[in-house]
Design a protein around this nucleic acid. Structure first.
Lengths: 249, 249
DNA sequence: CAAGCGTACCTGATACGCTGGGTATCGTGA
DNA sequence: TCACGATACCCAGCGTATCAGGTACGCTTG
């Protein structure tokens, strides 16, 4: 017997709309659980995040469940599958990331500085828990988080990188004339790829005196990115002289 | 009972050295198979490539084997595991790619054109068989082809992207002063990530009038890459006029 | 109005099916 | 004797099914 709300792992439903615009019944027995479910769901996500952080990105569902001191069945009632859990976790991580970026962006007037702080936030997130980062990005099955927007069978799982891409795209629109549509379509994705690839290599580089710091790495990457796009955006390639000093007059 | 040559899937051994530098006996019964093995091995790789091309990147080993009209055990004698097969296949694909690049690079004097032809070759390879591309890059398990050079437990499987990275790095050395070590270390990897990400998105974009052609895409990507690195390399951003005559003089 | 029964839903546990990677065993041919 | 190649097998891990509790809600009944 399936539960009436199988596992709506899109989490698209808003927070607190108990029961007023509903048609006929509004049965209290049914609505009673709405808030509970939501709370439990995020609790499960947090527990899973901890488990992945400690046990690695390949931890089986059963171990995740027992780390949350419950059993698989609960997780499979709240998330369609392991990829669904990963996606939900990605949203959480990304939301935290967005907070940090919003702070940083407020203090960074130029587009270049905005870009750099985004890269910085991304790198910092990944470095804080590589296991969680890997679980969220590469997905459990390996096919979850492809950089391509749409799966063949319009399954539309808004995965981690799609969200990041959207985050990049909107500020870009203001600096790029609408003629270059292809750039607008492909650059965010390309930029993510660059950051991801360089970032992951940086992450797995063993610490050594030669290894760049997080700040250095963020600047390096932002330079590459910015140099590549600035010409098309018609922006002067004036960069702030790097973290230590402030920007040009 | 293990075979004396379990499955040396590194394929680091050179092409045609049958048996001469071996130590004591050079038993005819033992050496008889050397050339056979080698031949069979590449035959298996080609068959697997065909199978993956037709059946998709998630095809099970058993189906690969039967598509090669043999059985799993043969593959597992020639390759340590599925990832080993993928790596071997990657080497083959990459070797073919390198040929095409060598041709193109010969006709392209400027660094920019060299870069663009590399991107073009990469994209063309991916577009020719997306299934094979995916199998080779993302690897079967999902963890095989990470952009990071070394695994934690120095397993050193020289995977696809490592080889591509090396291919980029050597020409770069000539244009970049040795002061910027970090750039030399991380840029090839970063560039691959950009190409990969944008390329994969382009690959999976359904054909439409707005979709850029392969040539356009290669130019677009090369521009981004080149703009990002040219400043550090101290190169003028002079580009060859491009096939289809793009904008920005 | 309150006691009581049925209802709707959640929980956590165990057990199962199934896919697919990798291995061991065996007969066969040069 | 050696490698070959097919079959049968083991096992991890995802996802599903089933079941016995447990708790708040709501409808009935006295």
């Amino acid at each position: 017997m399936n539960y009436p709300t199988p596992a709506d792992d899109g989490a698209k439903d808003d927070g607190a709309a108990p029961a007023s615009t509903l048609g006929p019944p509004a049965d209290g027995r049914a609505t009673r659980w709405a808030s509970h479910r939501e709370e439990r769901r995020s609790e499960l996500i947090r527990a899973a995040r901890r488990a992945v952080h400690r046990l690695g990105p390949d931890v089986p569902m059963e171990d995740i469940a027992s780390a949350a001191s419950t059993s698989k069945s609960v997780f499979y009632r709240y998330f369609r599958d392991k990829a669904g859990l990963a996606a939900a976790m990605g949203e959480l991580v990304l939301a935290q990331m967005q907070e940090r970026i919003a702070e940083a962006a407020a203090a960074a007037p130029s587009p270049y500085d905005g870009l750099r702080s985004m890269v910085h936030a991304y790198l910092a997130m990944a470095a804080r828990s590589p296991n969680v980062y890997e679980f969220v990005t590469r997905g459990p099955g390996g096919a979850a988080a492809d950089p391509a927007g749409g799966s063949v069978a319009g399954a539309a799982f808004g995965s981690f990188f799609d969200a990041v891409g959207a985050m990049i795209e909107s500020p870009m629109r203001r600096h790029l004339d609408p003629g270059s549509q292809a750039t607008l379509d492909y650059w965010p994705c390309a930029a993510i790829g660059l950051v991801r690839s360089a970032g992951e290599r940086w992450l797995t580089t063993p610490p050594s005196p030669d290894k760049p710091s997080l700040d250095d790495m963020a600047s390096l990457i932002a330079d590459w990115l910015y140099g590549g796009i600035a010409a098309q955006a018609g922006l002067a390639v004036v960069r702030a002289p790097l973290p230590a000093a402030k920007e040009h007059p």
